[in-house]
Amino acid sequence: MDDPTHRWHDMGGDAAGPVPLEGHDFAIWEKRVDALVILGQQRGHFTVDGLRRALEDMGEAAFESMTYYERWVAALNQNLVEAGVYSLEELGAKMEDVKARGDTYGAVQS
């Protein structure tokens, strides 16, 4: 950390350019990530602070290169693995299984 009193996510007061006002409708996969984050907390596997800890520890490079729900799904995964809901091996095997079904999000739903 360059400045231990001011981590990268603590952006208030930094200089920045014009606010980009264009938005997008949330894709179904993004809504599912949001739902899984809420439900994972309701199941008691992690707290909102656990989610934020994972997001903040990803660092600034992730903030710049990944979309919002890409960062959320990564943080969700980290928390669920830490909670022992599934192992990294199980996740890897499942992701290979999903990829083998097709090339688009719509095509690989089981």
Binding site: W29, R32, V33, L36, M66, T67, Y69, E70, V73, A74, L76, N77, L80, V85, Y86, E90, L91, K94, M95, D97, V98, K99, Y105, V108, Q109, S110
Partner: peptide, 11 residues
């Protein structure tokens, strides 16, 4: 990341 979402959901 979409693949990860599907995998987490299915698991």
């Amino acid at each position: 990341w979409q693949t990860m979402e599907i995998a987490i959901r299915e698991l």
